[in-house]
Structure formats: C-alpha cells, structure tokens
Design a protein around this nucleic acid. Structure first.
Lengths: 334, 334
DNA sequence: CTGAAAGCGCTTACAG
DNA sequence: CTGAAAGCGCTTACAG
C-alpha cells in the first residue's frame, strides 16, 4: 500500500496540514518539525498523490509541448533543450504530436481537458491560424511559442531572415552572381512563415548586391535529402546553371551534395553549396552552413515557462542570433 | 469558470453518477440519457478534471517514457512510434531523460511519486542493473522495455546479433577477408548489451567463415560521425589495412565515409563500408547498411503497453527482424 | 508555528 | 437504468 499524508502525520505526531507544509518547503514550520516530517516521509516512502495535489492545489507542475513531429532533427533538439530545463526545475513534460491536420484538430479539441493536466504549453512550429490562436488563448494555459513570433504570446525564434541573408551574402562575397535557392519553390508558403522569411533573406541579399533573383533559380524539392537530390537534378537541367546554391536546410544540402557527387559535379570548384541548420551530420559532410542553436531555443522556451510561475506572463518576442560556419563546400566561381 | 460534473448534472437533469457513466461510455445508461448528457457536456465545454478522476478512479491514462536522450536518431524514432499509438488510444505521453548517471538516479528516486502520475513506463535503452530493476518492479508500474531483453518484463528489440552477422557476412560474400569493426574497441561494454551483441555477431560471422578476428581491426571511436572519422584515421595507420569496414552505426559510417574521401581513399574500390541503422541520411550517402525499423519498435512497445490495460502483463521478449540494404559503398576487394 | 475542517471534482459500490 | 453518499488524498483559509 502507498503511504498517504495521513500515515506520515500519524507517525510524525503532527497534523496533515503540517505535513503538507513541511513537504512543500513552506515557511512557518519549525525546523525541528520539518526535519521530523521529512524523515518520516522518507522512511515510509511517502510521495504526495499527484491527482489529490492537483485537485486541491489547482496546479500540476506539468508542462505540455506540441510539435509537428519528434523524429526530425529540429524538433528533437528543441525537445532535449526543454527537457533539461524542466527536469532541473522538477517539472514533467507531456508531449503531443500535431503532424497531420487531423491530429492538430484533435489536439485543439482536447484543449479543455488539458487545462487540468498541464500548467503551460510550449508550441513548437505550430503556426496557428486566428481561430486556433484564439482557442489556445482562451484555454488559459501559459503559452510559449518557439520558431515563430506570435502576437501577444511569449515567443522565441532564430533570425531566419538574417540567416538566409548571410548565407547568400557569403556566396556573393566569394564572387558568385548566379545563386540558386534549393527549396525556394514551395507549394504553400502560408503554412510556414519560417521558410518565407528565409526566402526573403535570400532575395534581399541578392538585391542589396544589385543582383536580380531569377525565377528559374528557385528550385523545388522538400527540405529533406531526397528534396536536395531533386533540386540538383533540376539545377543540372538549366540552360545557364548557377555556380552556387543555398539550400534551405542541411538535410537538403547533404542530399544535394551526394547527388552532385553522383552526377560528377565537383563541389566546391564547380558548385558552391551552403546549408542552413548546422545539423549534427553537417560537420562530417564539411558543409558550409548557417548554425542555428536549436537546443538553446528549447532551453529559453522552458526557462520562460518556468518564469511564468512567478512573475506574470509577458508576450514579448526573443530573437536568437545565427552564425555562419564556413567549411569546405564553398569557394569562388571558376 | 470551468464547468464541473455538477454543472452538467444539473443542466441535464440527472445525477453526477449518471454523467460520470455516460461520459465514459459505460454500459447501463439509457441511450436517451447518454445523448442528453453528452450534448450538455459539449454545450458547457465540460471536460473532467484530470486530478479528480485519477484520485477517485486510481488511474491516469498517462504513460511515461525514459530514454537517455531525445535528440539522437534512435530515440527520436522510437518516440514518434510510441506517440502515434498512444495518441490514437487517447493516452498522453510523459517523457524523462536519463542521460547522465545523476539524472538516472534522480529519475529512479522519483519513482514513488510517478506512480500516481503515470500508469505505465516504457524504458528505452535503459539497461538497469539489478538494484534498479528491482526498484522499477517494486514501483508497481506496468513496464515495457525497448532495445534490450529484460528478465520478467515485456520487452522488444531488434536482433542485434543477426544484424551484425549479416553485415559482416555481406562483406565476406563479396570476397573480403580483412574486415575491420568501426567502434569495436569500446570502453565499457557492460553498459551496453546492444553493442556487445553486435560485436559478437561480427565475430561469429568471421569465425563461421574460417576467418580470424584480429585485435588491431577493432577500431576505437564513439558511434558518431566524429567517431567514424577517428576510426578511419586509425585504420589508415595500420600496417596491413583492411579492405572493408563494418561500422556499428550509420552516423559513424557516414563520418567515416567523409573522412575516407578527405584522405583520398576511394569507396568502395579501396574500402568497402557497411553501416548499421538505416539512418534517414543513409540513402543520400548511398550507404550499404542494416536497416532496423526503430519506429516500429516504438509502435510495438506502445501497443504492448495499451494491451496491459486489458489483459494481464506478460513478460515475454519480442525480436524485430533486421534487413540488409545494399547500396553503393560495398564491392569486392581489389 | 500548528490543527480542525471544509472543499477540490470526480468514481464506485450499494440500493432501488 | 439511476441516484444518494462515501471516499479518494491532498491544500488552504481560518483560528488559535
């Protein structure tokens, strides 16, 4: 049988109220009493009943996190960052996947039932529309968004525009004028403000250098290694192939790198390649890329969430800087 | 204000007991009544209070999962598999990281308090020692282990021995006799039965083919891309370099591939390479490897856990088969 | 600093 | 099929 607060109270010769106070480190408990209670609890293997605490206290100490997936590099990095902070402050993490539209809808439907399960919710790349955002707000949960700026809610993201600008600029600095964008031709940009920002950054860099973006240099393909392969194939079919390509993600870039090699295109002498992410395989691939410290996004989000417990919730946006990492896939054009 | 079961009962003109039964789909409720209750609940936006339910009912509908990390390929794949199944059966997933010895200890210490938070626990690559296993058992939580066989607990893993055997055998079939093992010189094998099994598989394949394992062919390095680089460097320093290498993981193999290329060693003509995992970047790299369907491990574990709710818990071990995927990094020796 | 008591919102026998 | 009531194990004013 589990020991209850009653058992501890009896054994320690105090009331349950005192046990409750002592266990939670509240003030106004004599040191002597506290010691005795803690000792007794330890001896009986007592741990408060979670449900009873949350019913009586109104708080759960659990934080939720929704992300599209967990098996992709980005989300898994955020997850680890969040987990570290939360476990250090002895909160637990409940995760929800919102991969398909149905799962998202189901998740949103469950919001009312989540309110008694978690104290706050971290949204990773959630990109809610107005209705969804309203539902989220009305839930009353503490909210932190990572990966996007959400009006009125605390949010954290990297500077996507700046990252893409720098990647492109690095290529321009090396003398390239014909620079393609791997993944630039996307089906639905509305769904991902992140990609839209990167594409804008690429364009801005070109324009600031007096270069004209060319439609045929916006290459298709998903941001995966398969997409990178497709982009390279498309590039090789161009009448005037570019001398450099900026891929919107490292996985895509690495897929592109492999395909370029396969098709006999030497990198960087015939084609310079820049990625985006600094994926954990990027160093091995020698890939020049934009490093985004994703784990840190998770850390900051969790810290923000933990801070909510104390002070009140402010909805400001925080931008984490990115960094250009030059490795071996870029050089001047020949 | 949240609506409570009282509110619904009053509005629907029934008792709270009836609301409770109707909401949970229990039998012995008139269809008419149920409809009315559900409608009212819907209208009031009622959702049962989680803490109250678990306090009164004794069950939480939450499942825990511990893994060393979540940002590594393997764990994140398992996680996604588990999440899919659990969310489909409307259970929630709470995650715990046991990366450092301190975190493991902390996690184990919290076991008594977890009992009222979760109904069951999925252990991913946990490798508990006897004491830890006893603590786990005594918690009374439903247990499922993935990645290892745990005496007396339901467990699921791939056939590590067989996978390594096949990888090595593929190399032997192609005519290689000098086959190195990337990652074969590990510091502490006790900690990872998984690696021990793979190493055994490699040795067994050699011996079955009448080949002698050579100590100097057990290459050091962690199972990461950095480790792969180190292994290749070590290999190139050997007096009689092997013509093939089996890496204990794909990330390691990909790191090795990159380093081989950098040092001017052509794959596969000068060195054949086989990995283990079928990591999502392996296809792009053209890497011949052993595919382990990790996501499926997660699916099976979660299904097993869900089944526990109904029937009783049986502690059998389930082996998920692996598969050799031949791509472009292997050929005969020259 | 400490205790008695109400209350949190459910579920579950027990009757009917 | 339905309801009244006890009970789950805490926390929190309120007194003292």
């Amino acid at each position: 049988m589990r020991a209850t607060i009653q058992d501890v109270a009896r054994e320690a010769g105090v009331s349950v109220a005192t046990v409750s106070r002592a266990m939670r480190g509240m003030t106004h408990v004599a040191e002597d009493t506290r010691r005795r209670v803690l000792e007794t609890a330890q001896r009986l293997g007592y741990a408060p009943h979670f449900g009873a605490s949350s019913l009586a206290g109104g708080t759960t100490g659990m934080i939720g996190l929704v992300a599209p997936y967990f098996h992709i590099w980005y989300a898994s990095q955020v997850l680890t960052g969040v987990e570290h902070v939360l476990s250090a402050s002895s909160r637990d993490l409940v995760i929800f996947a919102g991969d398909t539209p149905e799962n998202r809808a189901r998740f949103l439907d469950r919001l009312p039932s989540l309110v008694t399960r978690i104290d706050g919710l971290i949204l990773v790349d959630f990109f809610p529309n107005e209705d969804e955002l309203r539902a989220l707000r009305e839930s009353g949960l503490a909210l932190v968004a990572v990966g996007e700026e959400l009006p009125g809610v605390a949010s954290i993201s990297i500077d996507n525009f700046e990252g893409a600008y720098r990647a492109t600029n690095h290529l321009i600095d090396m003398g390239h004028t014909n620079i393609a964008l791997g993944g630039g031709r996307q089906l639905s940009l509305d769904a991902s403000p992140v990609l839209a920002l990167r594409i804008d950054g690429y364009r801005a860099a070109l324009e600031d250098a007096g270069l004209k973006p060319r439609v045929e240099y916006d290459l298709g393909g998903l941001l995966s290694s398969t997409g990178g392969r497709a982009a390279i194939d498309e590039l090789l079919d161009l009448a005037e192939p570019p001398t450099a390509i900026f891929f919107l993600s490292d996985e895509m870039a690495m897929g592109g790198l492999a395909q370029a090699r396969r098709r006999g295109l030497h990198v960087p002498s015939e084609l310079s390649v820049v990625g985006f992410d600094d994926h954990n395989m990027a160093e091995a691939a020698g890939l020049t890329t934009i490093r985004q410290r994703v784990r840190e996004l998770g850390v900051l989000a969790a810290q923000r969430m933990v801070a909510f417990a104390d002070q009140d919730r402010e909805g400001s946006h925080e931008l984490v800087p990115v960094e250009l990492v030059v490795r071996h896939t870029t050089s001047g054009p020949h």
